[in-house]
Design a protein around this nucleic acid. Structure first.
Lengths: 338, 338
DNA sequence: AATTGTGTTTACAACGTTGAATACAACGAT
DNA sequence: ATCGTTGTATTCAACGTTGTAAACACAATT
């Protein structure tokens, strides 16, 4: 009942063949007599042999593990994304190890630097706080694919959604429903907050195009992209005496938080205030009202990321960095009168 | 720019010492002259050396990786739990690899059987569809901790919440607010659906204690525990002509789905129908109305699971299987008039 | 009968690391 | 001067696997 630690050696002994032959059977090598093969397979079964991956990996220089580094797992967007990544990786025989960076720059630096070196063959990384310099300073040569808008010139592949265009489209939709005072929730001061910057740019572009004045008092800054931040930001808007008739939230969690505040204070949505979000997480499809949102093709993001990574893992890193643009779709729902 | 693959050997050569001395420095062995140490450290830095974990693990027979197997990552309860597990594991220097079983019995069997053998030192497993026989048939001797009510007699540790008591308390609370026709959403036919069975038992116990008749038509069966299932089940209840005045949903996702259906059809919550859930996911705290729910101490669950696992990883498997009961709390919110 | 070919199996080395055993130097105590 | 003692560094083997090259058996060809 202790640990017998069965290895090829033991199987070989039992089957009366060499270690390599057992290895050949395990790896499906063709030139093995059916007789030998079945004898070996019987022995494997009897001893309940499992290949030791550490040894195999040591020998081959690969582990078959890729890491997915995301800010937080309990942010639904990343949870949904993680699920797709795991599935896509599985189809290629890869195992996914998930790292949570907690959106801390320090943790993100660690990840980029390769603190899992030799344990992972590749990295899919969704950075939040990382600066371009951090990325440029990256020494580790583990293949890496970045998720999120391309802002770095490093040799890393990117999978992106056109944040500016998507944010613009969402804001224009609000304008098209006749709203004049369209607020934005989700601006961030941090220079590294690229997502925030791009969506804000799209928001302003839309205002200009719709002929609406840009009013800084309608732009709410937040610390994080959680429900609580959205709720507080909405409260600030309502308390400002400059109540908006529409709000574009830079993600669905912010929108759900904002919605909560609006309903709690008795404002009708979309009657009084219309609401749009970003990410299309499942929560938004079951809220009342359902939330109009930008829906990035998460499955495509995951698949493209895994494909890019797999390519770089085999072809080596000399290839040119590629950028893949993924489709999105504006889902019009009840919160804007859809 | 290709792959130099730095090893102890290279560092040793550069520093002019033996391989083992470098190893000693890396592992913080005490008896190394400051001079030697700094020379080695310089060489490490210059070559950007990283220990090869595969080799280390091969040598030591451990990988420092534990697996967490859950049904689906984008079920908020498991996402929140995963986050706590990752954090708790990190504090012990362990890395967490997450497996999604998709609640399929086949995948769960694979996990229990140890298809990651030799890659993980331990397993935290939240099975849904696995039968006691499956678990009994488990050959793999990787330490394992089960999450969820104890229903198996195998030698595995368990971390549990008292589902019967918690469900009973939630249902009694509904009765205490004066409700007479309390429905239940979340029953399942599958014999392996232990969670469902226990929460249903608690529901019936509460009805009996409150002196309310048990009415099978008020018990709704579901396929999964997702929002969509809750929404459909609620629709069936409303269409049955036997509309309830309260509903106890076996998890918060079901409750959110049910809430959506109720509001969509113009029923007031809690005015007309009161609603209670289970799990205390963040969504429920931002829904309108906020959802009354049973809140298991997720952080405690995660910490206890990791502790149990760590203990079994060092002490070996001979120790008696332990069961740890974790606290829960009924959070009374707006959906029951709180 | 000797040669070539084809399919099957094997011995050996190496991947990068660390535990055990050992060598060596410096020092204080006998 | 000799003997331990202590601190520092080294050598060696082994973890379990697979790629390479070579050995072997046997059939088909010359």
């Amino acid at each position: 009942m202790d640990k017998p630690r069965v290895g090829l050696k033991d199987v070989a002994a039992l089957a009366g063949v060499s270690v390599k032959t057992v290895s050949n059977v395990v790896n499906g090598y063709v030139h093995v007599t059916p007789a030998t093969r079945s004898r070996v397979e019987a022995a494997i079964k009897e001893l309940n042999y499992r290949p030791n991956l550490s040894a195999r990996n040591l020998r081959q220089g690969r582990t078959g593990i890729i890491a997915l580094a995301v800010p937080e797992l309990d942010i639904p967007y990343f949870a949904e994304l993680a699920r797709f990544v795991v599935t896509a990786a599985e189809e290629r025989g890869l195992t996914v190890l998930i790292d949570q960076t907690g959106a801390s720059r320090e943790r993100e630096q660690l990840v980029a630097e390769g603190f899992r070196a030799h344990l992972i063959d590749g990295l899919i990384f969704s950075p939040l706080a990382l600066t371009p310099e951090d990325l440029a300073a990256r020494m580790d040569d583990t293949p890496m694919v970045l998720l999120g808008e391309r802002v770095y010139d490093g040799p890393a592949d990117h999978v992106v959604v056109d944040n500016v265009a998507a944010a613009k489209e969402a804001t224009l939709h609000l304008a098209a429903t006749g709203r004049r005072r369209i607020a934005a929730i989700g601006a961030q001061d941090d220079v590294a907050a690229e997502t925030s910057r791009l969506r804000l740019a799209g928001y302003f572009e839309a205002l200009a195009e719709a002929g609406l004045p840009a009013d800084d008092r309608l732009v709410q800054h937040v610390e994080d992209y959680h429900r609580a931040d959205g709720a507080r930001a909405m409260a600030r808007l309502l308390d400002s005496g400059q109540a908006p008739d529409a709000v574009f939230c830079f993600n669905d969690l912010l929108a759900l938080g904002a919605l909560r505040t609006l309903l709690e204070r008795g404002h009708a949505v979309p009657g009084e205030v219309a609401l749009a979000g970003f990410d299309d997480i499942e929560d938004g499809r079951y809220a009342t009202p359902t939330i109009t949102t930008v829906s990035p093709d998460k499955q495509a993001i995951a698949r493209q990321a895994v494909d890019l990574l797999a390519a770089r893992m085999t072809k080596g890193s000399q290839a040119e960095a590629r950028e893949i643009r993924v489709a999105y779709q504006l889902m019009i729902r009840e919160s804007t009168g859809g």
